[in-house]
Design a protein around this nucleic acid. Structure first.
Lengths: 217, 217
DNA sequence: TTTCGAAAAAGTGTTGACACTTTGACGGCA
DNA sequence: TGCCGTCAAAGTGTCAACACTTTTTCGAAA
């Protein structure tokens, strides 16, 4: 959706506005002025309005009648909500993918994963996307790829990546892939839920620390 | 969202168009003509376009540039996808609600459930809505109440309800409520998943029968 | 000085007209 | 007869102007 060909102005505006969010030019929680965006992108307010509606549909923007649209705040509690949802949906996603993906598709994923590991590249989101695309349930794929992963990218673009989890994450991903290859959907599901659950608890810890700091100050 | 006050024309149009879908005036898979709807509701095409975008966001309408918007078909495979997603999300919903809801809220739900059972009223969707509202995760609540349950209502308005499952469903719901009251989130989650899983398999059986019939004819 | 209220400014909601794309029908050509 | 290109009709995409709501400003009264 993000990189598909653009047949209308609306599509282009959606992409450009999202880029604005990623680049921090518009801060989280900031406001979107229709007229200003229209002037910037050299289009009228119509396409801007539709683009905002679309971003609203993906949960990136919040809006009430007659009030300016606000970029979602993506506070820590927001992210915890998103991770709870991911834990449930991605568990199902990997279970379905374990049944639906062919041997060659899985092998290709394993190869790509090993290559990335050796190159030291992060593959986290890539892997989750591939699984969602392979699960065969288009509604689940759309929820993950067109909504939640957008929010995740936006969040990561803002919060400095905490290292340390990197090696653990590699191991966890590897186990998930092995379970898929062994066609053990149950195991793959619980590994995925544990994987995301760990990330959730890490966010909850962070939240508790923030609260403690705030109390002190 | 459906019954909130309406501050703009768009809100009214969304409600009216959804009523049109529920009443079968526009068939599943049918087309939405912007100009025709505008004439019918005595508004210009702008609000119609926004309403369609909003319905698209809820998965009720599918649209591509320059082509007429189509009402979602809600075929059996579509419903199976939706039920797979529900199984995952509602499992998490009831688990969170088990932790988040107060004793009095749970007791009230149990009372309402018993009353409905004696009166012979169906409470299926009601119960699921209450749980989603009580889970404390607004993103999950919105996904269930503002998207999936709309689709479910639409589907049920079209397909004659198969009886027989009614008594079983009562028992299953009762067990879920008991587990919540006992504050056993794990149990509540697996009961909910089993509950929805059974419905999913019933749909899959129906699909297999349809396929068989089609092959014969 | 502070508070309340009215008026102006800013911004979103709605509209009708025009531009572009798709679809289906018609006629020429093999 | 069947196929392909052209053209008209239907329908969606975009725009600029106007209507309504919200927010801010500013002045008068307590």
């Amino acid at each position: 959706m993000l990189d598909g060909e653009e047949r209308t102005l609306v599509d282009r505006v959606v992409r450009e506005v999202f880029a604005l969010l990623l680049s921090s030019e518009i801060p989280l929680g900031g406001q979107l002025n229709e007229a200003a965006l229209a002037a910037r992108f050299k289009v009228s307010r119509g396409p801007i309005r539709e683009a905002i509606k679309q971003l609203q549909g993906r949960g990136l923007v919040i809006k009430e009648p007659y009030l300016k649209a606000r970029v979602v705040s993506l506070s820590l509690p927001d992210m915890i909500e998103i991770f709870q949802l991911r834990e449930a949906v991605e568990g199902m996603s990997v279970r379905l993918a374990t049944r639906a993906m062919s041997d060659s598709e899985l092998d290709e994923m394993l190869d790509a994963f090993s290559a990335a590991r050796e190159a030291g590249r992060a593959v986290d989101l890539d892997l989750h996307v591939r699984i969602a695309e392979g699960c065969g349930n288009d509604r689940i794929r759309a929820l993950l790829c067109d909504e939640l992963y957008y929010l995740l990218r936006l969040y990561r673009a803002r919060s400095a990546d905490r290292p340390g989890r990197r090696e653990d994450a590699f191991t966890e991903h590897w186990q998930i892939l092995r379970a898929m290859r062994a066609r053990d959907g149950e195991l793959a599901e619980s590994l995925m839920r544990a994987h995301i659950g760990r990330a959730t608890r890490s966010l909850e810890t962070l939240l508790a620390q923030q609260a403690a700091t705030t109390d002190q100050g």
